[in-house]
Amino acid sequence: MHTSLIVPPSPLLNKVPEVTLFFWIIKVMSTTVGETAADFLIFNLKFGLTITSLLMGGLLLIVLWIQLKSRQYTPWKYWLAVVSISIFGTLLTDNLSDHFGVPLILTTSLFTIALIITFVLWYRSEHTLSIQSIHTRRREILYWIAILFTFALGTAAGDLVAEGFRLGYLTSGLIFGSLIGVIALLYYVFQRNAIASFWVAYILTRPFGASWGDYLSQPVGSGGLGLGTFGTSTLFLVVIVGLVSYLSISHQKWISQ
């Protein structure tokens, strides 16, 4: 009797982490760091927008090369890429708005279109947008392109609501937080599509984190709490490093079992 044994792909081959509470906490904090760290480099260290963009673009290429060369998910490599792409995504929007004078509503529209095109190309080539099967080079490249556009789009949308519509950072943070709550309700209570829910939530966490980052860091006269970009960035980076270190230790223990 001939028996065919089909072995499913090892989860170690997937290049992104499991979507847990830790995932969302680090994601939101990385978006905050993306906003405040970019401002710190531009204004506090006086690098300016152009130099900061070039430096962070070069760093992002190095970090993504490290991530792409890895044959399995490694927490520090993955989250270093997310933080780097968060900062660079912020700079993309800032360059369009500040250097080229593109209105925020147009910037938001352009990145929305770019993200939709990325999803269409991804789905047509892979027949799925799930992040639970990022185990080929093509899927991973499409994944990181989508991530870049979510950060750029989130930055533009957050700035549009907080500054363009003059609602302020706190109100903007509450609006996007409420939208994330609606998505969570639709998914957990009404069992809506998991993949669509993930990507909408992923996009919304960018302006949510950025709005709270601005609220914490900006001067009181500008509608913030005045903690400064250095203090806010340092605080959130420390938390990110702590959580990623914990995940790295847990991951190594799981591998060794």
Rank of each mutant, 00 (worst) to 15 (best):
T3I: 13
L12Q: 10
L12H: 10
N14A: 03
V16N: 01
V16K: 01
T32Q: 02
E35I: 09
A37G: 05
A38H: 07
G48Y: 12
I51D: 11
L54K: 08
S70F: 06
P75K: 02
W79H: 03
V83W: 05
I85P: 11
L92I: 15
T93D: 01
T93G: 12
D98C: 06
H99S: 15
F100N: 12
G101V: 14
L106F: 02
L106G: 01
S109Q: 09
L110P: 03
A114L: 14
I116A: 12
F119A: 14
V120H: 03
L121N: 08
W122S: 09
S130D: 06
S130E: 04
I134E: 00
I141W: 15
Y143I: 11
F151S: 00
G154S: 10
A156R: 00
D159H: 13
L160Q: 12
G164F: 06
F165C: 08
R166V: 14
R166D: 10
T171I: 12
S172C: 11
S172Y: 09
F176E: 06
G177F: 13
G181E: 05
I195P: 10
S197K: 00
I203M: 02
F208G: 07
G209S: 04
S211L: 10
V220G: 14
S222L: 13
T232L: 06
V238D: 00
I240M: 04
V244W: 02
Y246L: 15
S248F: 05
K253S: 07
W254C: 02
S256G: 01
